[in-house]
């Protein structure tokens, strides 16, 4: 194992984060605050309670997940796409590093960044509504698993994309809608039964549900199912990354 290489890639990526601190950290915090103002104040005044917690409190886990998902994908996809775009990838490919080490470096840095961001958003939310976390360790587990899974997913997008447009396409057209329709702002139980069935096809529902359970012990689906789906998606992304490196897809051909 080339630990020094992992460390070099990880620290290089984190340095990029600190260099772009404003857009990396500040802008998601601002947009989350805006969600609170719009959803919490405007809608929250009409929906007073969802399953025993106030609406403002109810949406906190969903908001954190929303940012963690989108930021994980954005960080990781950009992290690997940029060296491809400017050509510096040559050095990574010619270095004595295994694919596994490359992934640990890039995905680890992207996930770290979005976990930090998730915790900052959580702290920001704490300024608006009272928070209570029933199962902090489970909360962290779901946070880390989601950040890693979606950073892997972003890594795949970054390798697949051969232009900035493609880089934006999946996050814009697939991930954002799935997140908004995944129960960030409402409980799936509030939907008519037909829509509820359709919603259960959305993988993001399971992530948000599990995460919310760790806060308030309320969930749309069972916690075991949430965990299972998250791990399943993680495994799928890993398999995909393994295939990419085995074939040299978009990297060595």
């Amino acid at each position: 194992m080339n630990w020094r290489a992992i460390q070099a890639i990880y620290l290089f990526e984190m340095a990029r984060t600190w260099r772009t601190l404003l857009q990396s950290i500040v802008s998601p915090v601002v947009s989350t605050s805006l969600y609170f103002v719009v959803f919490g104040a405007a809608i929250g005044s009409r929906i007073t309670e969802v399953e025993g917690v106030s609406y403002g409190t109810f949406i906190v886990p969903g908001l954190v997940m929303l940012s963690v998902l989108t930021q994980s994908i954005a960080n990781a996809s950009f992290g690997i796409y940029f060296p491809k775009f400017v050509g510096t990838i040559y050095e990574i490919l010619s270095a004595p590093v295994s694919y596994f080490e490359i992934v640990v470096g890039y995905v680890g840095a992207a996930a770290t960044k979005s976990i930090i961001l998730g915790l900052i958003i959580l702290a920001t939310a704490g300024l608006f509504v009272p928070l209570h976390i029933h199962h902090p360790w489970w909360m962290l587990t779901f946070l880390v698993l989601t950040a890693v899974t979606f950073s892997l997913f972003g890594f795949i997008i970054g390798i697949w994309a051969d232009g900035f447009e493609k880089l934006q396409m999946i996050p814009m057209l697939v991930v954002t809608p799935l997140t908004f329709l995944g129960g960030s702002f409402y409980s799936v139980n509030m939907l008519p039964s037909g829509w509820r069935t359709i919603t259960l096809l959305n993988p993001v529902v399971y992530l948000i549900s599990g995460f919310r359970w760790s806060f308030y012990e309320i969930a749309d689906v069972s916690v075991a199912l949430s965990l299972g789906m998250t791990l399943g998606f993680l495994a799928a992304c890993m398999a995909m990354v393994w295939w990419i490196f085995r074939t040299g897809y978009r990297l060595k051909n």
Binding site: N2, R4, A5, Q7, A8, I9, L11, F12, E91, I92, A95, P96, V97
Partner: peptide, 10 residues
């Protein structure tokens, strides 16, 4: 320095 680390050298 990054290059040196990438190639596994202290």
């Amino acid at each position: 320095s990054f290059s040196r680390g990438l190639f596994g050298k202290p």
